[in-house]
């Protein structure tokens, strides 16, 4: 488990090689945005960690009735007169499911872009990066209910569909994390990586139960919590009628009067989420949307790499693959 310690907004320093998120967000095409991030990230690496990673045959298994006859190895049958089923590398490939929160609260942002834009870019970047590694990537967007579901695939055109899905994801109303988690638990039987991207500005009563369910089924879960800088610091000055983005409820708030209690309660909520993730062995990252995406990707991959090494000691697997799928 790895937790991003840099919760405070981090603005890239002058001359930094990272792309300023604001500049990045001006790129209209999501796919292009993802490419910019990933390739920039790749350029920084001396050696690509993804070379040599391909679909390969792994083993044979004796045929038993009920197996798909498409996977019978006819050559071996000709040689040995026995039925064997070929087991392919793809079974061992990573299946990543991106769960993207598109509720109204994600539409909030005090910068020139909002949390939803940032989250979409993060999702697109991850998807693009994984597709470069030939991993299957699926997408599930949700608000109050599930709005889009794209199963995890690795095939030509899939990435394009995924990007379109992300670009045109309709926004929901309320945040309900339980429903998509249940849906994923019900439909995805193969173990994989599940990345939940949300602001988690909702009660977390059932969060532990749902995440625990996924973990129990062997899924690796990563939680990316996307937040606006103002949500983290609450640096408003003027009293105003604050309107809830999701429920429309209005409240007269004097920021000076309530800042302290807001930060306390916000901190308690974040701590509760973090505690839940720690208990369940889930990677939890809290990301401010003014943080460069390369850093986010780098942090994410580094953390995965460390984790992969821990596992790789046992399995001596490909370090890059282990970085992504190390927890399988």
């Amino acid at each position: 488990m790895q937790t991003n310690e840099k919760n405070t907004p981090a603005t890239p320093t002058k001359g930094s090689s990272f792309v300023d998120p604001e500049t990045l967000m001006r790129i209209k095409s999501l796919e292009l945005r993802a490419k910019v991030v990933v390739e920039g990230f790749m350029n920084g690496l001396h050696r690509s960690p993804y070379h040599g990673f391909s679909v390969e045959f792994t083993e044979y298994r004796e045929y038993s009735p009920g197996d798909d006859p498409r996977y019978l190895d006819w050559r071996l049958f000709a040689r040995s007169d026995r039925y064997y089923i070929k087991r392919f590398e793809d079974e061992t490939n990573l299946r990543c499911h991106l769960l993207l929160d598109m509720s109204r609260s994600m539409g909030y942002g005090t910068l020139s872009y909002n949390k939803a834009d940032y989250a979409k870019t993060v999702a697109a970047t991850l998807a693009y990066f994984l597709s470069l590694q030939r991993d299957a990537v699926g997408l599930l967007t949700f608000g109050e209910t599930i709005t889009e579901h794209l199963p995890a695939r690795y095939r030509p055109g899939h990435m394009h569909r995924l990007m379109l899905c992300l670009e045109h994801a309709p926004s929901g109303s309320k945040t309900d994390v339980a429903a998509p988690l249940e849906r994923i638990a019900a439909t995805v039987t193969k173990r994989g990586l599940i990345v939940l991207i949300s602001d988690l500005l909702a009660p977390i009563d059932t969060l532990e139960q749902n995440l625990g369910h996924l973990r129990a089924r062997g899924h690796e879960v990563v939680l990316l919590r996307v937040l606006d800088p103002s949500e983290l610091s609450f640096e408003f000055r003027d009293p105003a009628m604050f309107r809830d983005a999701e429920s429309g409820r209005e409240l007269y708030v004097d920021p000076d009067a309530v800042r302290e209690s807001y930060l306390r309660e916000f901190g308690e909520h974040a701590a509760a989420i973090e505690a839940t993730c720690t208990n369940l062995g889930i990677d939890y990252y809290q990301i401010s949307i003014d943080r460069p995406l390369e850093l986010v990707l780098s942090d994410f991959l580094n953390a995965r790499l460390k984790r992969g090494r821990q596992v790789g000691r046992r399995r001596a697997a490909n370090p890059a693959a282990a970085a992504i799928g190390g927890a399988r």
């Binding site: 609260s105 949500e231 009628m241 809830d244 429920s247 409820r249 209005e250």
Partner: peptide, 9 residues
């Protein structure tokens, strides 16, 4: 009026 993501806190 000011829009805010959540009034829960």
């Amino acid at each position: 009026h000011r829009e805010f993501s959540s009034l829960m806190f």
